[in-house]
Computed example of a mutant assay.
Amino acid sequence: MIQLVELSVNGERHDLAIEPRRTLVDVLRHDLRLTGTHVGCEHGICGACTVLVDGQPARACLLFAAQVEGADIRTVESLSEGGALNDLQQCFSEHHGLQCGFCTPGMLMLAEGYLADEPDATKEEIREVVASNLCRCTGYQTIVEAIDDCASRRRAALQDRLDRSAS
């Protein structure tokens, strides 16, 4: 059986004819060719497939594509700004928050969603959140430092905008 599904991914609408039990990660990678979302455990444990669904981190391997019809889905490909790294990606680069890179897309999307909800997160809170995604290479310290630095930069930029608008 085939089901017609309309997905909004990275701001683009896609009309797809898929099997109802097709996972979101498979649709992203195979149908839409968005291979930045990685497939790891396929059981929702590792977090390599983390994407944002309506702004919230979600494991794409645990969702059927039909479940997220009408939702706003963002993958790691959405972070890049005109081919340049966004601030979070830049912080990961500067702090060496990646080594093999397999977990990186999931970590980036987890952090992007978390910082949107918790812009004042402490290092301890960040460490607790990123522990939900597996990384075998970095020991998490550089990932935590990268996310914390990005949060600090975003807070400073917001304060600068507020100061300018008040003057």
Rank of each mutant, 00 (worst) to 15 (best):
Gln67Phe: 06
Phe92Ser: 00
Gln56Ile: 04
Arg154Asn: 07
Ser132Ile: 02
Gln67Ala: 11
Thr75Ile: 04
Pro105His: 11
Gln141Lys: 15
Tyr140Asn: 07
Ala151Val: 02
Val76Lys: 04
Leu28Thr: 06
Ser132Tyr: 07
Glu81Ser: 08
Arg21Ile: 00
Glu124Asp: 14
His43Met: 10
Asn10Val: 03
Leu85Gln: 09
Ile126Phe: 07
Asp31Ile: 04
Gly55Thr: 06
Leu16Ser: 07
Cys150Glu: 07
Leu4Glu: 15
Arg74Thr: 02
Cys91Asp: 13
His14Gly: 06
Ser8Ile: 13
Ser80Met: 10
Val9Tyr: 09
Asp31Ser: 13
Glu77Arg: 03
Thr50Cys: 10
Leu110Tyr: 06
Asp160Leu: 14
Phe64Trp: 05
Asp120Phe: 08
Thr35Pro: 01
Glu94Arg: 14
Ile45Met: 15
Glu6Phe: 04
Gly47Val: 10
Val39Ala: 08
Ala116Val: 01
Asp31Ala: 13
Asp87Gly: 14
Ala17Lys: 14
Glu42His: 12
Gln3Tyr: 05
Asp148Trp: 14
Arg74Pro: 01
Glu19Gln: 14
Thr37Phe: 06
Leu162Ile: 13
Ala146Glu: 08
Leu85Glu: 04
Ala58Met: 12
Thr75Ala: 01
Cys150Leu: 04
Val27Cys: 12
Pro57Met: 13
Asn10Arg: 12
Gly139Ala: 09
Cys49Pro: 00
Leu85Arg: 04
Val5Pro: 07
Thr75Leu: 04
Cys41Asn: 05
His38Lys: 15
Ala121Gln: 06
Leu108Thr: 13
Arg13Gln: 11
Arg13Thr: 10
His14Pro: 07
Thr122Gln: 11
Pro119Met: 03
Lys123Asp: 08
Leu88Tyr: 03
Gly139His: 09
Arg154Glu: 06
Leu24Ile: 06
Gln141Met: 11
Asp72Met: 08
Val9Asn: 03
Ala151Ile: 03
Asp26Ala: 09
Gln56Phe: 02
Arg33Trp: 03
Asp31Val: 08
Glu128Pro: 00
Arg161Val: 01
Glu77Ala: 05
Ala111Ser: 15
Cys100Val: 09
Ala111Val: 03
Thr75Met: 00
Asp31Thr: 12
His95Ala: 10
Tyr114Val: 03
Glu12Asn: 14
Ile2Glu: 13
Pro119Ile: 03
Val9Trp: 09
Thr37Val: 08
Arg29Gly: 01
Leu79Phe: 07
Thr23Gln: 15
Cys61Val: 02
Thr35Gly: 02
Asn10Thr: 10
Gly36Asn: 02
Arg136Gln: 12
Cys46Tyr: 09
Leu4Tyr: 09
Asp117Gln: 15
Val129His: 00
Val9Ser: 02
Glu94Ala: 14
Leu108Val: 14
Gly101Cys: 04
Gly55Ser: 10
Leu62Met: 15
Cys150Thr: 09
Glu19Val: 11
Arg22Cys: 05
Met107Asn: 05
Leu63Lys: 11
Asp120Gly: 13
Leu4Lys: 15
Gly139Arg: 12
Leu162Thr: 06
Phe64Gln: 05
Glu118Pro: 00
Val130Leu: 15
Ala166Arg: 15
Ala151Leu: 04
Thr23Gly: 00
Leu52Ser: 05
Arg33Ile: 02
